[in-house]
Amino acid sequence: MSPWRAFVLFLQREAAIQARRPELLAHFLLYGFLLALIFSLAVDPVEKDPRPVAAGLLWLSYIFAALQGFDRTMARERAGGALEGLRILPLPPAALYYAKVAAGWLALLLAQLAVTPLFLVWIRWGMPQAPGLLILSLALGSLGLVALVVFISTFTSGLRSGAGLLPFLVLPLLAPLVMAAVRLTGAALTGDLGEAGVWLKLLLSYDIVFLVLLGWAFPWALEE
């Protein structure tokens, strides 16, 4: 079976699971909304101008949502023995990895499309200056984020005391992505596009490096 065919099959599997019980989307949405709410209250938009930190707070919400969502779903897959079954299939593990990334990315994007406008309303921002770039920055940032979290949660889910370790492993590796995504989202919100090109390139290179590297290393993450 060609790797592409395997990818499509794995993607259908993810879609079937999420259609039965949209756990990822539900986690991302609920976590995203709750953190946006808490951040809006914490920065008190009436007293101070929260706009300079808005992009950072948005990304914090999505990072925590991703950590939470994948921690749960991956633990369930591991506990049910599903990962073990998938591991021994005579199919390329990279196809499974990319299917999981694609499904998670789609779910996170859907959640972002709902949470971002509401957050902007809550902190009284109004319309972003460059909506197209905003969507692009969310999409590219989420891709790298999901690529990393899927990989790390796959092997931390296999450890008895591993659940609490996910953020310690993910957050330092996420540092360059956070820098680039926050700057790019900030540029899209304010319309100050002077440095946007540089951050866009950095975000793209992060996505490519991590997708290639982690896809290649995924068999080791699956190992028991």
Binding site: F151, F155, L169, P172, L173, A175, P176, M179, A180, E195, V198, W199, L202, S205, Y206, V209, L213, L214, A217, W220, A221
Partner: peptide, 20 residues
């Protein structure tokens, strides 16, 4: 080993990002 190697690969990206 995988964590160590992925961490190592991250370093040039961090450097590039913070140089900007």
């Amino acid at each position: 080993a995988v964590v160590g190697l992925v961490g190592f690969a991250n370093v040039p990206l961090v450097y590039l990002a913070s140089r900007l």
